[in-house]
């Protein structure tokens, strides 16, 4: 790495001569090495899916979830350093609570992501260190349809049609681009998301993994939910069959 030994990576407040902030880039690495997470906005909803790495068989089922509710309609998915992400979730939660107190209505998704992004940014510069986490925020309602945001360790906050982060993000993005996502409803998205996650796995390295998903859309009445285990299992079954079928054709 060009940064090593140059001394420009010792603080998040120091730019390198070519205008980079290495500490933030290192934090981004924590996300890039995490289990792949994809999020897709479809015809009438948003689906998030993450390939969760189970580091020990002794953990209870669904320990350390990566998909959360911020309020009834806004969902969050985290990738990267787990405690950092968990803390970010708690921050987002507090913000949603404050919003509900001040305005007496649920906090909209763009406000949540914006406020989290601002916090991530100021935490890096003014408080301590970068967050080693990226966070997706999704919601759906009749008026504005599905919305999907990603907050990165740099504090960057963009809205997406679909995106992928983590280990195999490039392959995942290539797969997503092949889909006509505007025509897919959330049932289809769950299946396709499972297919993409499974298809881009490195069979030698990615062992002890589990898919966790979240969805929000017309079918869930605008409520964000962690997708039930049996629905995920059915999607995986469909995906495996589909992938086998594709292999036969080759």
């Amino acid at each position: 790495m060009s940064s090593i030994g140059t001394g420009y990576d010792l603080a998040a407040s120091t730019f390198s001569p070519d205008g980079r902030i290495f500490q933030v880039e290192y934090a981004q690495k924590a996300v890039d090495n995490a289990g792949t997470m994809i999020a897709i906005r479809g015809k009438n909803g948003v689906v998030m899916a993450v390939d969760k790495v189970i580091t020990s068989k002794l953990y209870t089922d669904n320990a350390n979830p990566r998909i959360f509710n911020i309020n009834d309609s806004v969902g969050m998915g985290i990738a990267g350093n787990y405690p950092d992400g968990f803390n970010l979730k708690n921050y987002a939660y507090g913000e949603a609570m404050k919003w509900l107190k001040d305005y007496r209505e649920p906090m909209p998704v763009n406000k949540v992501s914006n406020s989290v992004a601002e916090y991530v940014h100021i935490f890096t510069l003014g408080i301590s260190r970068p967050y080693g986490t990226s966070a997706f925020f999704g919601s759906w309602n009749k008026q504005e349809g599905g919305r999907l945001f990603l907050v990165e360790p740099s504090g960057l906050n963009y809205e997406y049609k679909a995106w992928a982060i983590g280990k195999h993000r490039q392959a995942a993005k290539a797969e997503i681009e092949k889909l006509k996502i505007d025509t897919l409803d959330i049932q289809d998205l769950v299946k396709e998301a499972a297919r993409i996650i499974i298809s881009i796995r490195d069979e030698n390295k990615d062992k002890n993994v589990q898919i966790e998903m979240g969805w929000v859309g017309e079918q869930t009445n605008g409520k964000y939910e962690t997708v039930p285990e049996d629905v995920v299992a059915a999607a995986e079954e469909w995906a495996n069959a589909k992938l086998d079928e594709d292999d036969m054709e080759d």
Binding site: N69, N71, D72, Y93, A96, M97, L100, K101, R104
Partner: peptide
């Protein structure tokens, strides 16, 4: 009502 709503959200956490 707002206090209760927030309490409900807290429990959901």
């Amino acid at each position: 009502q707002n206090v209760i709503e927030r309490q409900v959200l807290l429990w959901k956490r």
